[in-house]
Design a protein around this nucleic acid. Structure first.
Lengths: 203, 203
DNA sequence: CGACAAGTTGAACTCTGTCAATCCGGGTGG
DNA sequence: CCACCCGGATTGACAGAGTTCAACTTGTCG
């Protein structure tokens, strides 16, 4: 069987860790994941969030070992795609192979969008728009969704202080751009939110 | 002939521009170049500086079009390495091919060293140390050289304001780290300069 | 010599990080 | 069942780094 659906994972459970042997790619079926690395000083660096329908583990193909840690942010399930099967299929389907390579080269590096010197507003707006668009692509509501990750994770990912994330969200709410309550988010003005981050490369 | 030496180029003259058909790689023979891109709002982003002995144009191999602009910062000459010749040679020499691929993947993205949130001190120190080391590798003095690029270019590259570059250079001078007069630079304390940027990934 | 670009310097201001206090919700244990 | 506790989240005060604005200097090139 090409696709294997996993048992549900719970918050904080790791799907794979740095150094694990690479055997399969994973597609998120439900729930959220985050990927992160730990730098030489022991600090965690959040590299990305993975929504239902998205792939994880592509960065491990070349060195045959996982380069990052992947952990469930809430109750989640994944589909396991054993690499051998996938690779065999890819050789027969050039389009699949091309897509895998594209995802690889994009996925390994992580978003370079956060490299520039963007303001907290720009970063957060870009982040929210990215979530919105990715959820919409998968058939979910682009305007009302759950922030499964903590403010701390968001801040780490965007390279801000958690307080700044909190404040900027509050400011967005004051400006009528969105309504936020704990983890529940409703985007009220995608138009203006998009303008805020028009010069931030796609996250 | 594999290597073609160009006629001297003068300040501001472009070696290639975004969109130019990719036909050759260039090695700087003398002088300095900078590569830059222009974002959708028309602002210039300096991507790197190229010193004698270094290669340019590798990022164009895949899409077969140049991805950046390359312009001479002073009177300069280059060696033109037609890609067909090089590619033919590479197929016969796996080591050459490997080196080209490595340079490619490193060279396209540009330095991600400037991604993090580093201080102006760290950025500038890392920049100067990078120049110093690269010049030394090519047989030039690592402690006394010419800043062919303007403060504006440096600032743009390091994502600072030109005033900050100016001030930080002045501060380094006050601290006895270097002596600078216009474009002439003398590094007086490589040790401390290196310490200043020890946690900045190599530029 | 004059004009202009490059570079420097000063002052005010803005943004964001840090520190600290507080709030809130969910889970635990008595 | 309720009080307590704890981590996540918010809010305020403050400080430091760096940008912006503006004035001024210096060097270069016609």
């Amino acid at each position: 069987m090409l696709v294997q659906t996993s048992a549900p994972m719970h918050v904080g459970q790791h799907l794979f860790r740095v150094g694990d042997a690479f055997q399969a790619i994973y597609a998120v079926r439900s729930g959220y994941f985050k990927t992160y690395a730990t730098d030489d000083t022991g600090r965690e660096q959040v590299l990305g969030f993975h929504l239902p329908g998205e792939l994880m583990g592509l960065g491990a193909i070349y060195p045959n070992q996982h380069q990052v840690n992947a952990v469930a942010l809430d109750t989640a399930t994944v589909c396991r795609l054993p690499y051998n099967d996938l690779a065999g299929l890819a050789t027969q389907m050039p389009s699949l192979q091309r897509q895998l390579l594209r995802l690889m080269s994009k996925g390994i590096t992580g978003s370079q969008a956060l490299s520039g010197d963007f303001t907290a507003e720009e970063r957060l707006a870009a982040f929210l728009m990215s979530l919105s668009q990715r959820l919409q692509q998968r058939g979910y509501s682009p305007t009302e969704f759950n922030l499964a990750m903590t403010r701390r994770d968001i801040a780490n990912y965007l390279r801000l202080a958690t307080e700044t994330v909190s404040r900027t969200l509050a400011q967005f709410q004051d400006d009528g751009l969105l309504a936020v309550e704990r983890r529940n988010l409703r985007l009220l003005d995608l138009e203006r939110l998009g303008q805020l981050c028009h010069n931030v490369p796609q996250i």
